[in-house]
């Protein structure tokens, strides 16, 4: 039985689609089809535009000094807040502390993440790969506050480690609210990011290359240093950029595991706005933080390209 014999038995779905198609053609005629790409991009551009506007707003705030008499920001523009940020020891210390932490955390995280990603990619057993992936995604999906809370239970004065020490008759240790605790929390937070950025880069390296290197007499360590790591460079760069910028801008770990004594830039910005009610100073710190991050990312992108952070892969 052909379609014609069934008369009007064209499926409803078809007619519906045709109608939708006609409406689309009327609303978006072929003459403007060249702009379709931009039409599809528009919502994303507008949404991200909120951030751009917000950033400009914060930058504008940073140019107004606090009037101690009224506790309002002055009308006239000045660079006084930047003078405070760069002139006061406490703020310079905070910036240096955050940058140092970011450098340490990036180095430690990459050293830990690289073998993990390698084992995950190269293992011959699918269940091992799955187990490693799940172990990675579980903390990734649990969020910073809950993870920090886990460390609090473990490291606190009355925490599990100190109770265990006491049970053994040993002196309790101050494991919490210090620099190391913050670094530990940050490394744990960054590991999934780093591994997930490294894994695709390692997948892209054919195993035969490693075999070739080893058949030419290289030990596995030499193969790692001279073949695998150089070939994984795009992934390493991407992971380093992500870990460094996320660490230097982090708020929760220094806040919770540092207990207010190990402030990073983000904590100082927050305190600027809400503790000392000086939005101008907080904004100036924010602008400095954005400048540090953008300069760094810009330099790396200019030197090496967007690498694994790009949305569009090479087109065939």
């Amino acid at each position: 039985m052909s379609v014609r014999e069934r008369g009007h038995a064209v499926p409803v779905r078809w007619r519906l689609l045709d109608a939708v198609e006609r409406v689309a053609a009327a609303v978006w005629p072929p003459a403007v089809r060249g702009l379709t790409g931009w039409l599809l991009l528009l919502p994303a551009l507008l949404l991200v535009g909120l951030l751009a506007v917000g950033l400009l707003w914060v930058a504008e705030y940073s140019l107004h000094e606090l009037d101690p008499a009224t506790y309002m920001l002055r009308e006239d523009y000045s660079l006084a807040n930047y003078g405070t940020v760069f002139g006061q020891r406490v703020y310079i210390d905070i910036v240096l502390r955050s940058a140092a932490a970011a450098a340490i955390v990036t180095a430690v995280t990459l050293i830990l993440a690289f073998p993990y990603a390698y084992v995950m990619v190269r293992t011959a057993r699918p269940w091992v790969r799955k187990a490693l992936l799940v172990s990675l995604f579980l903390p990734f999906f649990i969020g910073q506050v809950v993870r920090a809370y886990g460390w609090l239970i473990l490291l606190g004065k009355q925490g599990l480690i100190n109770q265990a020490l006491a049970a053994l008759g040993l002196e309790p240790m101050n494991l919490l609210f210090n620099y190391n605790a913050v670094l530990l929390g940050l490394v744990q937070y960054m590991l999934p990011f780093a591994v997930l950025m490294l894994a695709p880069a390692l997948t892209a390296i054919p195993e035969e290359v490693e075999q070739a290197s080893e058949s030419l007499g290289a030990t596995w360590v030499q193969t790692f240093l001279h073949v695998v790591i150089p070939m994984a460079k795009p992934g390493l760069v991407g992971a380093a950029v992500v870990v460094f910028t996320l660490t230097i801008t982090d708020f929760a770990m220094p806040e919770i595991l540092g207990g207010g004594t190990i402030d990073f830039i983000a904590n100082a910005i927050y305190d600027g706005f809400f503790q000392i009610a000086n939005a101008g100073l907080g904004s100036a710190l924010a602008v400095v933080l954005v400048a540090i991050g953008t300069t760094l990312v810009g330099l790396i992108f200019a030197g090496l390209g967007a690498g694994t952070l790009s949305f569009v892969s090479r087109r065939g």
Binding site: L50, L55, V58, V242, T249, I265, I269, G282, G293, F311
Partner: peptide, 24 residues
């Protein structure tokens, strides 16, 4: 340029994004 722009959520620190959105 568009790609860099759409990466703004990652290049602007969360605390700054949050404050900007709070102001808006």
């Amino acid at each position: 340029g568009i790609q860099l722009y759409l990466l703004l959520p990652f290049t602007i620190p969360l605390i700054v994004s949050g404050l900007g959105l709070m102001l808006i």
